[in-house]
Amino acid sequence: MFTILYTISLVLALIGIFGMISQKNLIKILISLNILETGVNLFLVTAGWSAEAKVPIITGKLGLPAAVNFVDPLPQALVLTSIVIGLGITAVALALILRYYRKTGSLTLEPSEFQAGGER
C-alpha cells in the first residue's frame, strides 16, 4: 500500500511535468501545474502516513498511547501551506493568461506573425 501510494503520487507528478512540457495551450499548462502540485502534496502526506495510525486529532475514543497512534501531523501542516501557495500561483497565472489572451487573442503558445523566424 505504501509503495502504491508513493508510486501514484510520483506518477501524478510526472504526468504534470509531461503536460507542462508537451502542451502549448496555456490553460492546459496551468492544469498540468496543478496536477504536479497534487502529486507532490500526495507524496508529502504519504511520507507521514501509516496504515495502523489514526487521524491526528485527540478525541475521546483513543485507547492507545497517543505518541505512537497518530500519523505524522507535520507533513499535513506543510501540505496545507503548499495548497494555499498553489492557489496563489494559480490565481496569478490565470491573470497572466487573461492578459496574454487580451494581447494576442489566443491561448496557445504559438509563435505569432509578429515574431520573425518562427516555425510557422
Binding site: 507521514g48 497517543a66 505518541a67 505512537v68 497518530f70 500519523v71 501531523p73
Partner: peptide, 19 residues
Amino acid sequence: TLRFGPHSPASRISGAMIE
C-alpha cells in the same frame, strides 16, 4: 531494495508536538 515502505509511526512522528 526499496527504501520506502511500511514504517512504525513512533520512529517518524513528531512526538513532542503530539505531547
